[in-house]
Computed example of a mutant assay.
Amino acid sequence: MKTMMKYGVFSTFVILVISCKSVDHNMRIVLVPDTQTYTEKYPEILRTQIQWIADNARETDLVIQQGDLTQNNSKEEWETVRQAFRKLDGKVPYVLAVGNHDMGSAPGKFADTRNTTLFNRYFPYSEMSGLPGFGGSFEPDTMDNAWYTVKTGKIKWLVLSLEFGPRNKVLAWAGKIIEEHPDHLVIVNTHSYMYADNTRQGEGDDWRPQVYGIGKDTGEDAVNDGEDIWQKLIKRYPNVRFVFSGHVLHSGVGTLVSINDGGYPVYQMLANYQEGVKGAEKGGNGWLRILDMDLRENSIEVNTYSPYLGKHMEDPAHHFRIQNAFFEPAEQ
């Protein structure tokens, strides 16, 4: 049975907002959902997204991308991605995830193996480890699973970016990293976790990691979907506060607040606007997720903005406020 609070049900956690007024914030996270259609067909949209972030770097504490950077895992697409994100180097900490379209034995073979050669060629450990906030990685000289630290005021954050369908041994490693940072609040970023019905991805849902070639692995290499990740990692550690993911189509969005084993809330969000999502145009029209956290008022305002269109999305699934958010580390 899943432990969950569906989006919009408990007003003590979620209050819908109807305008995009600027808000004071102590921390801003910009989420960059799946960019695959941009790199394949509309590179100018990706460039516009990243340029906007670079132009607003002083107001941004952290940038997190949810995977599927490319559509076909080709050299041409990776060159487009690297050129875009290079604008952020040294300006603002950014975290990337590996999606199913970013790995495979050859271009167009998605997650049949865990081959991420091109990802690690264009975002090499030798360069990425020197950027702000980098902490370390699971496997030597690879960026598939990595951790970062960011400090905002008195709060120290640990960010874990995990591979698509993280293996059992990766979840065990992530748990150890969390244990080594007991005074940090934790953000987990992984490509596939939430589903479009405001629940975690699990049995019976589309696009589970288990249906890809890597899903045949067993033992410590066995893959995990969203519900598996919750059971084996997220709910066990009281300081995990956020989980961000993409990957899933249908509506492309989902929000869930669950209570972990320590009695603390975990804010879990799916955002994906790529080609194939209901109503998507030009692979998503450049929509970004912006989280403004007011650490004094204990609130999180979530906005969806496209620098390509110069517009905000006002639908309550894309623009809402979480009240009574909990930002303190768990008592040790």
Results as ranks from 00 to 15, higher is better:
residue 165 G to H: 09
residue 92 V to Y: 01
residue 252 G to S: 07
residue 102 D to P: 04
residue 263 G to I: 05
residue 29 I to G: 05
residue 233 L to F: 08
residue 129 S to P: 03
residue 291 L to W: 13
residue 225 D to H: 06
residue 247 H to E: 15
residue 60 T to G: 10
residue 9 V to F: 11
residue 69 L to H: 05
residue 156 K to E: 15
residue 52 W to K: 03
residue 56 N to P: 06
residue 117 T to V: 03
residue 133 G to T: 03
residue 117 T to A: 01
residue 28 R to D: 03
residue 244 F to S: 00
residue 171 L to G: 07
residue 30 V to G: 00
residue 74 S to R: 02
residue 249 L to F: 14
residue 202 G to C: 03
residue 202 G to A: 00
residue 296 R to A: 09
residue 286 G to F: 12
residue 265 P to L: 07
residue 206 D to G: 12
residue 298 N to V: 13
residue 278 K to T: 14
residue 233 L to S: 14
residue 154 K to G: 10
residue 118 L to Y: 05
residue 328 E to K: 06
residue 201 Q to F: 01
residue 331 E to W: 07
residue 239 N to I: 04
residue 276 G to N: 12
residue 172 A to K: 11
residue 117 T to L: 00
residue 84 A to P: 06
residue 170 V to E: 02
residue 141 D to S: 11
residue 147 W to K: 00
residue 76 E to H: 07
residue 57 A to F: 02
residue 111 A to W: 04
residue 184 H to E: 04
residue 115 N to G: 12
residue 217 D to S: 11
residue 267 Y to E: 03
residue 46 L to C: 06
residue 207 W to G: 05
residue 99 G to N: 05
residue 217 D to H: 12
residue 46 L to H: 04
residue 234 I to T: 13
residue 143 M to R: 00
residue 19 S to I: 06
residue 49 Q to T: 06
residue 203 E to W: 05
residue 266 V to Q: 01
residue 27 M to G: 09
residue 261 D to R: 01
residue 66 Q to H: 11
residue 209 P to V: 02
residue 228 D to G: 07
residue 263 G to R: 04
residue 162 L to D: 02
residue 125 Y to H: 15
residue 157 W to L: 13
residue 274 Q to D: 13
residue 319 H to I: 12
residue 234 I to E: 00
residue 129 S to I: 00
residue 202 G to W: 03
residue 148 Y to V: 01
residue 205 D to I: 09
residue 11 S to G: 08
residue 296 R to L: 08
residue 129 S to F: 01
residue 1 M to V: 08
residue 295 L to T: 11
residue 67 G to H: 11
residue 290 I to N: 01
residue 59 E to P: 06
residue 254 G to T: 07
residue 249 L to A: 13
residue 150 V to P: 00
residue 114 R to T: 14
residue 150 V to A: 00
residue 93 P to H: 10
